[in-house]
């Protein structure tokens, strides 16, 4: 899908969210749903399969998200699936988050961790990242068991890797 179309969908979603007064929350929910979708090939394939009736695909979205996220998020995701953009949800969600942060003059920091970060840890990490990169960041914490421990932070093209997985990899390469 062309970047201009992804950008158009992202801006449309941000406008709807802003209109509903749930801008930041919709961004976060859409981002988390995109992460879940990336972790499930079956779900991603189903939502992208044009042979599956649109109503069926929308019903699957509603069944998954109903009660878990805001109705605005459910409606927006359902809209994307109905528009045949099920395979572009991840790209659109990333663009929504990036455009939202940009609007707030912040950068998006994807934080990969085995456990959820406490508010204190997130606050201190935001301060530390601003100190290291000079940018105010909005953190999107992604639970990833493969990192084994520690954190991996990606801000735009910059990666700060402090995971146990990488340490063990370096140990293996040291032999």
């Amino acid at each position: 899908m062309a970047d201009d179309k992804i950008n158009s969908y992202a801006q449309a979603i941000l406008s709807v969210a802003a209109g509903e007064g749930t801008g930041t929350k919709v961004e976060d929910e859409l981002y988390r749903f995109a992460q879940v979708l990336e972790g499930s090939d079956e779900l991603k394939t189903t939502l992208s399969d044009s042979s599956v009736p649109t109503a069926r695909r929308q019903q699957i979205v509603e069944d998954l998200l109903d009660g878990q996220v805001t109705q605005t998020t459910v409606a927006l995701v359902s809209m994307l699936v109905a528009a045949g953009r099920g395979s572009d949800i991840k790209s659109i969600a990333d663009r929504v988050v990036a455009l939202g942060a940009e609007t707030r003059e912040k950068a998006v920091a994807e934080v990969f961790s085995v456990v959820e970060l406490t508010d204190d840890q997130q606050s201190r990490l935001a301060t530390a990242l601003k100190s290291a990169t000079g940018k105010d960041v909005e953190m999107k914490v992604i639970i990833d068991e493969s990192v084994m421990g520690g954190l991996l932070v990606q801000i735009e093209d910059e990666v700060i890797d402090g995971t146990v997985r990488t340490r063990l990899k370096q140990l293996r390469e040291a032999f």
Partner: peptide, 17 residues
């Protein structure tokens, strides 16, 4: 506890750079 300690160490290390 170890995970929290690793995260804290990471934050301290990033903040010190």
């Amino acid at each position: 506890e170890a995970q929290a300690r690793l995260i804290d160490n990471y934050i301290d290390q990033v903040g010190s750079n």
